[in-house]
Amino acid sequence: MIKEVIVVEGKDDTTAIRRAVEADTIETGGSAIGQAVLKRIALAQQRRGVIIFTDPDHAGERIRKIVAAKVPGCKHAFITQEQAAYKGDIGVENASPETIRQALASLRTEYDGAVSMLTMEDLIAAGLIVHPEAASRRLQVGNALGIGYCNGKQFFKRCAMFQITREEFEAAIEGLDLPTATEL
């Protein structure tokens, strides 16, 4: 049994989580998260800890941001859009039990007040911002780092929040064999 309570978007996500692991969930009911749900999540964080495991899409990222802002110190589980896709639908409910177990084994923990070990210049040099292919490059690097996809500003914040080291960052860039922005 996983000690932390897993925050998911809906019933189908709960079903998928329970196929993979024994765990309790709190369902947000979509992106319109009410105060009552946020209070339950805050109580779960105080008593057991919380893992945010939302869909790798815009709505899921919005929910993740809202919960993380209102309930500090959450852990985060990420899956890629490819791992969550089925017949044009993207969601945790589509992920295999093995993918869910892997995501839960590779949690990232927020570090409040974190100072980034990277600079915006590092992101520019890697072609993750101010580059014609920046979005697809961030997607690949975010997946390699286990922090998911987001825009350039959020990517920088996540690198700080999850204390991504320069070594992790460089390994993710090298491992993907992406040309630098200056090589293009």
Rank of each mutant, 00 (worst) to 15 (best):
I6D: 00
Q35T: 09
I147D: 03
A181E: 09
I164W: 06
T99V: 13
G30S: 10
A32Q: 13
G88K: 08
A171R: 13
L178I: 11
T109R: 14
N151Q: 07
G10T: 03
D24H: 05
L123Q: 05
A181V: 15
A160R: 04
L104N: 00
A181Y: 04
G30V: 05
E61K: 09
K65L: 14
E174W: 09
I173W: 11
G113F: 04
M1F: 04
D24Y: 04
A84W: 01
D177G: 10
T165G: 14
G148I: 10
A125D: 13
I51Q: 00
T165A: 14
G127T: 12
K65P: 05
V5G: 02
Q83Y: 05
V92P: 02
E82L: 09
D177Y: 08
K3V: 04
Q140V: 08
G34N: 14
E121R: 05
I164Y: 06
V92K: 01
V7C: 00
D55V: 03
A85I: 00
T15H: 04
S136W: 08
T14L: 01
A84I: 00
I79M: 02
T14S: 13
P132H: 11
D12S: 13
S31R: 15
R158H: 12
E27N: 07
E110A: 12
I173R: 09
E61F: 07
V71M: 10
R40P: 01
R166P: 02
E110V: 02
L104Y: 01
A16S: 14
T119G: 12
T182H: 14
S136C: 07
I164R: 03
A125Y: 06
E174C: 11
E168Q: 15
K87Y: 02
H76F: 13
A68C: 12
E121S: 12
T119H: 08
E4W: 04
F162K: 04
L139V: 04
R62F: 07
G127L: 05
Q102M: 08
T25E: 00
D122C: 06
A135W: 06
E121N: 09
L178G: 02
P179A: 04
